[in-house]
Design a protein around this nucleic acid. Structure first.
Length: 323
DNA sequence: GCGACAG
DNA sequence: ATCTTGTCGC
């Protein structure tokens, strides 16, 4: 009997980024990339900037001490404003700023962060769980497809699931769930941002395959969000994304193969005159079945359950805001 | 100038 | 993903 597989889906990376920034002492600076590296992946540097730009506690969290990699001080409020304010604050802490750059950058650059290398841990977890992905049809009496999507309003994520009967595409179930999201968007770590929401909408109904808005095996570590949802909740899943994260498309046909390090990992679906959809295995399904199912759902240019879930979670977010 | 990466 | 005026096209 295959049980659910645990993964770190409750990481508060926003908090960890702010906590790292508080470690920069008065009179020193660091960079967005330095913090990202300390957290385990330099590719999170944009996310570090995004989170610090929305710093809820200025001064308590000295985000003004975080500058660009070349020593330019940059903006203060994340809206393209406050460059002078940031330079004044740094000067008041004893730093020299010339032409918008920190003087003696190397000498005042703090890099002794004490923080878990969390992103490295998560990437290793993805590599480990990837071995648990089942790439063959593992379900009986497939009767329903459920599409999931998430919309955002500030720190809150609004998730929705639309379940349809495959036979006639009739919507048979719909569910909402919202909660605070504590993990920023970082390419290749999307599952850690959205699984905490999606898990409340998935109950492993018999005869149901789940369509996830994002990649499955078409991922740098072969473990995109569709795999993570599938393995961690032990359900059949398909990854269907609107753009490519990795992989090479062969031609631009209606159903073009996508290769990753020489292996056939996905298909591009490209209906005439419409946008492309990139399909790959999430879990407990074969690539051929996953692709055929998606193909049959492209009645409005994108897989219909995802289109409806997208509309619904945006309405959900708007309504919750009071609009 | 090169590379640029799901939502 | 979200921020957003006017503009283009079915």
């Amino acid at each position: 009997m295959c049980a659910l597989v645990a993964c770190n889906d409750d990481v508060d990376l926003n908090r960890m980024i702010l906590e790292a920034a508080t470690q920069i002492p008065d009179g020193m600076v660091s960079t967005y990339g330095d913090i990202a590296k300390a957290l385990g992946d330099v590719r999170a540097s944009r996310a570090v900037g995004t989170v610090l730009a929305k710093n809820p506690r200025p001064f308590v969290v000295p985000c003004h001490r975080v500058v660009y990699g070349d020593g330019r001080t940059g903006w203060y409020d994340g809206q393209g404003n406050g460059a002078d304010r940031k330079m004044d604050l740094l000067r008041s802490e004893g730093l020299k700023i010339v032409d918008g750059r920190v003087e003696d950058f190397d000498r005042v650059r703090f890099n002794a962060f004490e923080t878990p290398s969390i992103l490295k841990d998560l990437a290793e977890e993805q590599e480990r769980l990837r071995a648990l992905v089942v790439e063959k049809d593992d379900f009986s009496n497939l009767e329903f497809v459920a599409g999931l999507d998430v919309a955002y309003d500030g720190v809150i994520g609004y998730a929705n699931i639309i379940k349809m009967r495959l036979r006639d595409l009739k919507v048979v179930e719909e569910l909402d769930f919202s909660a605070e999201v504590k993990f920023p968007y970082i390419p290749s770590y999307l599952g850690y941002r959205e699984l905490p929401l999606l898990r409340h909408l998935i109950h492993g109904d018999e005869g149901t395959v789940y369509l996830i808005d994002g990649q499955g095996r078409l991922h740098p570590r072969g473990f995109g969000i569709a795999c993570q949802v599938g393995v961690c909740l032990n359900v059949p899943t398909i990854g269907a994304a609107k753009s490519l994260l990795i992989g090479d498309v062969e031609g631009d046909g209606h159903r073009a193969p996508i290769h990753l390090s020489g292996q056939l990992i996905g298909y591009q679906l490209h209906p005439e005159g419409r946008t492309r959809t990139y399909v790959s295995v999430g879990n407990r399904i074969s690539l051929e079945t996953a692709t055929s199912i998606c193909d049959g759902l492209m009645i409005n240019g994108v897989p219909e359950p995802l289109r409806l879930a997208h509309i619904r979670c945006e309405e959900f977010a708007k309504k919750a805001r009071g609009g």
